[in-house]
């Protein structure tokens, strides 16, 4: 249940970011064509990309979609699989715990600075995405852990599974298009 709502919220937020980013780029082209370029365009769009990166990475973590190499693990015997699985989860969680901790520490230093083209926007706001999304990453990793654990125990190759899913979607669309 929690998982469902976290996923929906992240989805809606990041989808809005992507729509926003697209609109900014298109607006910039339009404004330049009418001789009044948006001066904050590239700085704001770059920050938008960073937010999309980090919050989108949370969504990808929830869907376990990050690029990896599951082949060896899924083909090794269960007694080897389990400790390696736990170890790799621990590495992921500790990495983002560190990023969240130090990301929070540097906020104090960032409070000095603002965007160059929009001096009213503080860097504390723009770079808050790092500690917040790092914390969310841990949450998403934990929320998707039970599903990943089951698949690991069953020896599912997740890359193979992703490929099957892509083909299923394509075939489904093909049928829809023919109908």
């Amino acid at each position: 249940m929690t998982r469902f709502w976290v996923e929906k919220l992240l989805e809606i937020f990041t989808v809005c970011l992507l729509i926003g980013l697209t609109s900014i780029v298109l607006a910039a082209v339009l404004f330049r064509a009418f001789d009044s370029s948006l001066i904050w365009y590239d700085e704001v769009a770059s920050v938008g990309l960073a937010w999309l990166t980090f919050y989108g990475a949370n969504l990808a973590a929830l869907k376990r979609a990050h690029m990896g190499f599951p082949g060896i693990i899924s083909h090794s015997p269960l007694p080897i699989r389990i400790p390696l699985f736990i170890f790799s989860e621990l590495i992921v969680i500790s990495f983002f715990a560190l990023v969240a901790y130090y990301g929070y520490q540097v906020m104090e230093i960032l409070a000095w600075d603002a965007l160059v083209s929009l001096p009213s926007v503080s860097l504390t706001l723009t770079q808050s995405a790092v500690p917040i999304s790092a914390s969310l990453f841990i949450l998403c990793e934990l929320l998707s852990l039970p599903g990943a654990w089951k698949k690991m125990c069953a020896g599912v190759d997740t890359e193979h599974e992703a490929i099957e899913e892509a083909i299923r979607l394509a075939e489904e669309e093909l049928k829809e298009a023919k109908a």
Binding site: R32, D35, S37, I39, W40, D42, E43, V116, S117, P119
Partner: peptide
Amino acid sequence: RIRTPQSEWRT
């Protein structure tokens, strides 16, 4: 259309 750095003053 003149390319300038982002700085508020320059633009």
